[in-house]
């Protein structure tokens, strides 16, 4: 499927997320962490670390990575892959900013909703 004809869901204003920070979007299936980097890129990952379930939304954001608050695994925000020696990945939800609004890809959210 190509990105152009996806359905997007608005979840809030970019300014509602602190730079180098994250906010949580709750869905029926679980939480999505929406990250904003220092240069205003946004990314969205499942808010569950594959290690022991740590909430990635609570981690420190640096560059395009986040460090899990529980045991310091580091994840690439774009791919959801763990960096360095750790192995694991989190599901990515496509995200973009338009007119100051943060949009998440609806089908990814739906996938997140199906266990």
């Amino acid at each position: 499927m190509n990105a152009e004809n996806r359905n997007w869901v608005a979840v809030g204003a970019l300014d509602d997320i602190p730079r180098q920070g994250a906010r949580v979007v709750k869905t029926l299936a679980g939480c999505i962490a929406v990250f904003r980097t220092a240069d205003d890129e946004v990314y969205a990952l499942d808010d569950r670390c594959p290690h022991k379930g740590g909430p990635l939304s609570q981690g420190i954001v640096h560059g395009a990575s986040v460090t899990c608050p529980l045991h310091n695994w580091v994840f690439d925000l774009a791919t959801g892959l763990a960096r360095g020696a750790d192995e694991g990945s989190v599901a990515v939800t496509a995200a973009k900013v338009e007119g100051g609004q943060v949009l998440l890809a609806a089908d990814d959210l739906a996938r997140a909703a199906r266990p």
Partner: peptide, 16 residues
């Protein structure tokens, strides 16, 4: 305030 509240709550319909 933002620290303690979710950004959004997405309903089932919106996500379908």
């Amino acid at each position: 305030k933002h620290e303690f509240n979710p950004l959004a709550i997405v309903s089932a319909e919106a996500a379908e």
